[in-house]
Design a protein around this nucleic acid. Structure first.
Lengths: 348, 348
DNA sequence: TGGTGATTTGGTAGCGCTACCATTTTTTTC
DNA sequence: GAAAAAAATGGTAGCGCTACCAAATCACCA
């Protein structure tokens, strides 16, 4: 067992972990550790001369701060957990991409969490990631277990809830009005003169945002005096495959249908691809509308009419709201409607 | 300023951060803090009675460990940074998904990092994330800045390099032989009787794995006695859009071409979609082959011939290799060829 | 019954950093 | 030019946890 000259047993450093510490930099620069800490975190409180000496020592030794230690001491590890329902759904990926591209240059790292649409898992995930003393947090949706919500509110750091818009939120909120978006497409179909319209979705038992769109769809039809309410659904996650299946099912079960309103573009694209294959003409034989604005929609024949949501931008804006609060100020607004846009193309 | 009865100034807890600590649990259970720590981390070293008392206290108080503190003390924060070139490329997303689905149930969290194909950024990202005292790490590719490689080797914790296969690696390696995969498709095209074949890719200046596939393609053609070597490329990231553009470019510049070998399925799908639109028959007029096995390929008309790579599974396996090493053992193998498969469909 | 070793529990110190306060140095003011 | 104010630097303690060692308890056998 190694002992140093003072006779105190030397504590082994963590395996292979011979990183340069702040102390090493302080020794090299001939100042106290706390001064190095200041030079790095609040350089305006350190004289120019010292600051330079310290900067030199930092680069000479290749010092990289141990964020863990910093986090323990001051709270805030520059980690931002992003909790989404699924990583297999392109939508969330694009939002995450926007978040990541905005946070990383600002010196924050994204910690991924996925809940599989299970609020129980979400709650325990919240507990877990709070264990990392994150600087802020991004959550999907406005509905959470009460325990998670309480904990996050008590936490007192910035939280952004995305994808959905509501009256009340934990802290900040950015998203779209799902009900209105659903109604928008339905109204468009009605305006086009379609009367027999069905809504087709997947996993609507747990994906309540899809349910909200369906709700909007129904209200719009009702307002237009159309009582027919046909719903086809499936429990598997959305995919081209399931879109094709739902399409064939609808064609088979209700040959009189004139238009299909899909819960998202994955399903709608699958339907158009199947239509291409079996020779069903869109929109002459049947019209197809989607939701999201996936890029594939523009490249199909016919091109897909859809309600686009700026997903990447939503991520960017969510991150900016977070950063604004983290950097002391307050965001321009704590509730942002990122909006949607009806893109009328050839499929309706 | 609050002072407690001992007269020592009380240190304010971090804002709003009134989490239950291990000490609180210890008090509740009437044991020493270290015993609680043991009950949670190495329960086999604690008697059954105490263990139960402690477990009760934990759930009564809703204790959640502060992983930051644990990490500082023992190294290893149960964070696994995953460093990929881009989050806008579906391939990496699917790998990340596999990683995440495997690590999260084992109690590890994924920390995302993206390099934009820039090795310099990768190196500084490595420095940054090592500041989180991660338990292990997953990197994309085998080529890194020397500084990053040195640091990771000295680090001494498990590292998995994915996507690519090589003679030497930092620690563990799982992926596919890109050169062979490229050659595989090229040989298939030759076998089908196509003679005038072009390779089409994007961003090949920085995406050296695509370059490897092109290299394999060239070698295979050469071996078959075909000297023609046509390469179309673009600098934008791969997309349906760029695939369509490259397709039209190739058709225009070299009307004699019989087959197109695309660097990935995004491009190839774009080409088929464009072919559908302008009425070019695939494969009668021109054959199209891809790489990756994106699900979209199966739903196109004609269905896309491609070399599939099990991306999700690669992520799962990479995570398993990491977990095997983290849990003390050693993985079955530290170099895994995840393989690829030629899926011959109608587009060739 | 006492002694030996194995098992269970506790005490102490410290991971690397920063909050808070104290001290020193510099600048400003009258 | 001395006093007051401001700015720059340092000392100390502790964030919540675990490694390491020491002490206490238990089990077992001669």
């Amino acid at each position: 067992m190694s002992t140093n000259k003072t006779g105190v047993r030397e504590r082994r450093r963590h395996q292979g972990d011979n990183r340069v510490t702040l102390k090493d930099v302080a020794r090299e620069a001939g100042v106290a550790p706390i001064t190095v800490s200041r030079a790095l975190n609040t350089p305006e409180n350190v004289s120019a001369g010292l600051r330079e000496r310290i900067d030199n020592a930092v680069s000479a030794l290749g010092y990289v701060p141990n964020l863990i230690a910093g986090g323990l001491a001051s709270a805030g590890t520059r980690v931002i957990p992003v909790v989404v329902p699924s990583l297999s759904i392109l939508t969330y990926i694009e939002v995450i991409h926007g978040i990541q591209q905005t946070l990383e240059p600002a010196g924050y790292q994204v910690l991924l969490g996925s809940t599989d649409f299970d609020l129980e898992r979400e709650a325990s995930l919240v507990d877990t990631v709070l264990g990392y003393s994150p600087s802020g947090m991004i959550m999907t949706g406005l509905r959470h277990r009460e325990s998670a919500e309480r904990r996050l509110k008590a936490w007192g750091r910035p939280v952004v809830e995305i994808m959905e818009l509501g009256e009340t939120c934990i802290d900040m909120n950015i998203g779209v009005e799902n009900t209105e978006a659903g109604a928008c497409m339905a109204r468009h179909l009605v305006e086009r003169g379609y009367q027999r319209i069905a809504f087709l979705g997947t996993g609507m038992a747990h994906d309540y945002r899809a349910r909200l769109r369906y709700e909007g769809h129904r209200q719009a039809l009702k307002a237009a005096g159309i009582e027919s309410d046909v719903l086809f659904q499936d429990d598997q996650p959305s995919s081209y495959e399931v879109g094709r299946k739902l399409f064939l099912e609808a064609l088979d079960a209700r040959p009189e249908l004139q238009a299909l309103h899909f819960a998202n573009d994955n399903l709608a694209a699958g339907a158009i691809l199947e239509a291409n294959r079996i020779g069903v003409r869109v929109p002459q034989d049947i019209a197809i509308g989607g939701y999201l604005g996936l890029s594939l929609g523009e490249h199909l024949t016919p091109r897909l009419t859809t309600v686009t949501v700026p997903r990447y931008e939503m991520g960017v804006e969510a991150a900016k709201m977070l950063l604004a609060k983290l950097e002391g100020g307050s965001p321009a607004s704590s509730r942002v409607d990122i909006g949607y846009e009806l893109k009328v193309r050839e499929s309706t």
